[in-house]
């Protein structure tokens, strides 16, 4: 277990170094004249990777928060969609405000609605002991239905978050462009990875949360209120998924479309598994999935028509299947996830 973890981090570090070197070479030397190398390593490909990864990172963090306390969350997709729609409604109804407050209001509402979706999932699966996978499915259908029912197709959101260049750091060639010239929610997502990692493994909250996901009865017998932690973390997770939706509307696309999450919630779930329920692992996996989306985009831009575009679009989904098939046996999910916790003998 520990060994495989170390090996994977070596591989990850090697990959990062490889990409940094190639990025420098391709973007600063004549090597960049090669179309294929540009597709793989251009600044725009790397930028796109990060942008495509943000919702996946946030979604995977949502999954980690829920599953580390023992609640399976397949409804990330629905939470994200609800967050996106909420952000859109909030933004369009405050179009007359100055841009920044209006956008931040959108973020706040996305967080709120995401949190409410999390609460609903928690109530269904804890209070009413619904199968957690089915509860997640309910959220997905519900979010799709409600957003379609309430969607005003004439509404237009005006403006979205722009990039903020971090003074100094953004001047670094290539890296500055890719990493330090981004809109605020992108930075937020990256910071959250660190925060949640520290939270999970170095704080009281994290220790208790993980205990609830691994051995709820052990947590209960030392006075930890298992279901309270499960409620809390599922709501927090929902907020993160809501933020992912807010990112799509307020930072990436600028508008809402029906079903605009397009499976990102599910890919997040795969990133979570792929990353072994660790924030940094999930981020790595999310970047990998984001990269496949970037490739698809770059191939189209480069005018590569030898492969039909539908097949290129399949890449992220196929990679997800391959990742889930290849890694499930090697990772170790929280032991108690998906199981209803009741104090022994106190049912009904």
């Amino acid at each position: 277990m520990q060994r495989t973890l170390r090996v994977t981090s070596y591989i990850a570090i090697a990959l990062v170094i490889f990409f940094v070197v190639m990025a420098f070479l391709v973007n600063l030397t004549p090597l960049g004249e090669n179309t294929w190398l540009r597709v793989f390593f251009s600044v725009s490909a790397l930028n796109f990777t990060l942008r495509a990864s943000v919702p996946l990172i946030l979604g995977a963090l949502c999954g980690i928060l829920c599953e580390r306390t023992g609640i399976i969350n397949i409804g990330i997709e629905g939470m994200m969609l609800a967050g996106a729609f909420a952000a859109f409604v909030a933004k369009t109804s405050t179009n007359h405000w100055p841009l920044m407050p209006s956008l931040l209001f959108g973020v706040a509402i996305a967080l709120l609605v995401g949190g409410l979706m999390g609460l609903l999932h928690a109530i269904f699966s804890i209070r009413y002991r619904m199968d957690q996978i089915i509860s997640g499915t309910v959220l997905i259908i519900l979010a799709g239905g409600v957003s379609a029912y309430l969607f005003d197709r004439n509404a237009v959101a005006q403006g979205k978050f722009g990039a903020i260049a971090i003074p100094g750091l953004s001047q670094i060639p290539v890296l500055g462009e890719v990493l330090f010239t981004n809109p605020p929610l992108t930075y937020t997502a990256l910071i959250l990875v660190v925060v949640i990692h520290i939270g999970l493994f170095y704080t009281r909250w994290g220790l208790r949360s993980r205990a609830c996901g691994e051995h709820p009865r052990a947590a209960d017998t030392v006075g930890v209120n298992v279901n309270r932690f499960r409620y809390m973390n599922t709501v927090l997770g929902g907020m993160l998924a809501g933020l992912a939706g807010g990112f799509l509307v307020l930072e990436a696309v600028g508008q809402f479309q029906e079903g605009m999450t397009a499976g990102r919630g599910f890919i997040s779930l795969a990133a979570m598994i792929f990353g072994n329920w660790m924030p940094f692992g999930a981020m790595g996996a999310a970047l990998l999935f984001g990269y496949t989306q970037a490739l698809q985009n770059e191939l189209l831009l480069a005018g590569v028509t030898t492969v039909p575009r539908q097949f290129v679009s399949m890449i992220p989904y196929v990679v997800t299947i391959v990742a889930v098939s290849g890694f499930v046996g090697r990772v170790r999910p929280p032991a108690a996830e998906g199981k209803v916790y009741e104090t022994e003998g106190e049912s009904e």
Binding site: T203, R204, L207, R208, R210, A211, E214, H215, R217, A218, A219, T221, V222, G223, V224, R332, A335
Partner: peptide, 22 residues
């Protein structure tokens, strides 16, 4: 009532943790 994947220390302090600077 022990969490198998955690250390002895984590298991013993669970629910009664010592916290320094958060």
């Amino acid at each position: 009532q022990l969490v198998p994947v955690m250390t002895v220390t984590d298991n013993i302090m669970l629910g009664d943790e010592s916290v320094k600077n958060g």
